[in-house]
Each structure stands twice: as structure tokens, then as C-alpha cells.
């Protein structure tokens, strides 16, 4: 039996009928056309599918869409504001924080939570915070540099 799910995605109310087994990442990608949340490992390890749910970083490949009913979801498509890129996106741009770009949406959305908790997060704290996000280009140096720089700019 299908279930009705009402949620907010990037500030827009969405009302969808879904099979219980539909994963949040598939709802976002296949039903709503938001392909920013990438499916990498599909086993809750790589973090490419990370989105914010009620402000918290979560892996959308490990959530049922029905569990997101009533929640406020932000994907990478919803991060930039009217005035342009989000400061973390800008910092990735400025610091060459991406290579192939596949892990980038997940990295940036996890970084939002890391800097929410502590805008002055150190290099080590950022690395620890990114435990659930893998970059197969191994571009961690510039990813960490970007996040630390974004934090420094926000707290300046």
C-alpha cells in the first residue's frame, strides 16, 4: 500500500505518494528530479547521498521516504541563497575543494553541520567530522582547507 508523504524540500512543500520501500535518495533523485544527492556506495558508508533533514546531516540512502514525512529536507540544490553561493560552496570554489565532484554535495552538507556545531572547527575536528564522507579522488587536503576557510570567514 502506498503512503502519502508531505515534506518540505529546499523550502518547497511537496506532497507525494510512495511505496514504503522507496528510499529518500530515490524520492529526491527519481521523483523530484534533485540529482545532487549522489548514490555512491549505497551501503551507508560513503556519504555522497548526504542531505540535511531538519538541519541534521543524514545519509539519504539509509532513510525511507516515509520516515521523512513532515520533515524539512535541504539538498545541495537548495543551499545557495538569493545572493549567490553558500559560504561553504564559495570556499570549495576558492580552495579547489573538489576534483571529480561526485562526493562534493555530501561533503558540503556535512560541512554545514560541522560548522553549525563549531564555526571555528580546527583542521583535526573537520577531518574527524568527515569520517562518514569518502572522496575517491583522495582530495581531502583541499576539502578540509575549504571547510576550515569557510568557518573562519563565517566567524570573522
Amino acid at each position: 500500500m502506498n503512503h502519502r508523504v508531505c515534506l518540505k524540500v529546499n523550502g518547497e512543500a511537496r506532497d507525494v505518494e510512495v511505496e514504503p520501500r522507496l528510499l529518500l535518495c530515490h524520492l529526491l533523485r527519481d521523483e523530484l528530479g534533485l540529482t545532487g544527492a549522489n548514490i555512491g556506495c549505497d551501503t551507508s558508508q560513503c556519504g555522497s547521498c548526504t542531505v540535511l533533514m531538519d538541519g541534521k546531516a543524514v545519509k539519504s540512502c539509509t532513510l525511507l521516504a516515509v520516515q521523512a514525512d513532515g520533515c524539512d529536507v535541504t539538498t545541495i540544490e537548495g543551499l545557495a541563497g538569493e545572493n549567490g553561493l553558500h559560504p561553504i560552496q564559495q570556499a570549495f570554489w576558492d580552495n579547489h575543494g573538489l576534483q571529480c565532484g561526485f562526493c562534493t554535495p555530501g561533503m558540503i552538507l556535512t560541512a554545514v553541520e560541522i560548522l553549525d556545531r563549531n564555526p571555528c572547527a580546527s583542521d583535526a575536528e573537520v577531518r574527524h567530522g568527515l569520517e562518514g564522507n569518502l572522496c575517491r579522488c583522495t582530495g581531502y587536503e583541499n576539502i578540509v582547507k575549504s571547510i576550515v576557510a569557510a568557518g573562519a570567514r563565517e566567524s570573522a
Binding site: 551507508s44 556519504g47 548526504t50 541534521k56 546531516a57 543524514v58 545519509k59 539509509t62 532513510l63 556535512t110 553541520e113 560541522i114 567530522g129 569520517e131 562518514g132 564522507n133
Partner: peptide
């Protein structure tokens, strides 16, 4: 336990 995302859920 796990990572930030896992601990959030």
C-alpha cells in the same frame, strides 16, 4: 559510533 550522519539517526 559510526559517523556524524549515523549518530544523527
Amino acid at each position: 559510533i559510526g559517523d556524524i550522519q549515523v549518530r544523527n539517526r
